[in-house]
């Protein structure tokens, strides 16, 4: 599996760098919008009390506010990366070469997913660093105090956010992998993934309003936010684990049983 992992990293180097760069760019953009593009409520006491954007940004969670807000966009990039990596081998015909080199399909897929997870971890790490740098750079412009950001609690919160976003991003990616494995087309898989996010799940939520508590996108948001009033962080973590396990199992089953006729 280590050979497939290495081979995948070599072959996917360029696309992975672009993907990680897009993740970081989204984080930088959303962090900037978070700090300088907000519309503070007006009126007596506005801008200083609870619920104020400036007050929230000055809290221990403010340091990673950009990364947390960019989580969905980073997830979509991961979905596209995983889908492209999986489907590209079918589209280009390199799947034949891969399986002639390594006939154990579980190893091929395992190595590929491990390489993609590495890219996701690196991409989110770079995004987190960019987000933190941008937050410190923009705080004076937005008149946001950074005093709370350097406390131990803030560091702990930042690590927690980065880990949550990393895990959520991996699940997004795994969703892209299973879609690409089934469709054998990167564009179809990405369109289906984004279509579900933008149209499918909102429609389901309209019809069945509690479904957002357990549908994929809703669960990912809940997990990244550290839980909601209705669904705890632990519950969302369990649900997300089930989704991830289902995606991985489905990808492996389809790949191991499929005839390679492409």
């Amino acid at each position: 599996m280590l050979r497939t992992y290495k081979s995948e990293l070599i072959r996917f180097r360029r696309t992975a760098l672009i993907g990680a760069g897009i993740m970081a760019a989204f984080t930088a953009l959303i962090t900037t919008l978070t700090f300088v593009g907000f519309d503070e409520p007006t009126g007596p006491g506005a801008g200083r009390g609870p619920g104020s954007v400036v007050t929230d940004l000055a809290s221990i969670d403010g340091l990673m506010a950009g990364l947390a807000s960019a989580a969905t966009m980073i997830g979509i990039v991961a979905l596209a990366l995983f889908a492209t990596s999986v489907a590209r081998d079918y589209e280009r015909g390199t799947i034949r070469q891969l399986l002639v080199g390594e006939p154990r399909r579980a190893f091929v897929l395992g190595g590929k997913l491990a390489a993609l997870v590495t890219v996701v971890v690196a991409g989110v790490a770079v995004s987190a660093i960019i987000g933190i740098g941008a937050a410190f750079a923009l705080a004076p412009i937005a008149d946001v105090s950074t005093a709370a950001w350097t406390t131990n609690a803030a560091v702990s919160a930042a690590i927690s956010t980065a880990v949550n976003v990393t895990i959520a991003t991996m699940v997004w990616g795994l969703a892209g992998a299973v879609l690409a494995m089934v469709t054998r087309s990167a564009s179809t898989a990405i369109t289906a993934g984004i279509g579900y996010l933008l149209v499918g799940e909102p429609l389901l939520t309209l019809v069945w309003d509690t479904s957002s508590d357990w549908l994929v996108s809703g669960t990912l948001s809940t997990f990244t936010d550290g839980g909601t009033a209705l669904v705890s962080y632990g519950q969302s973590a369990v649900l997300l684990t089930l989704y991830a396990a289902t995606f991985v199992a489905a990808t492996f089953v389809v790949f191991s049983r499929r005839d390679i006729t492409d």
């Binding site: 050979r3 497939t4 290495k6 081979s7 070599i10 072959r11 070469q97 891969l98 080199g101 390594e102």
Partner: peptide
Amino acid sequence: LRNLAVLAG
């Protein structure tokens, strides 16, 4: 070839 050699060991 180097890329494929990684797979082939």
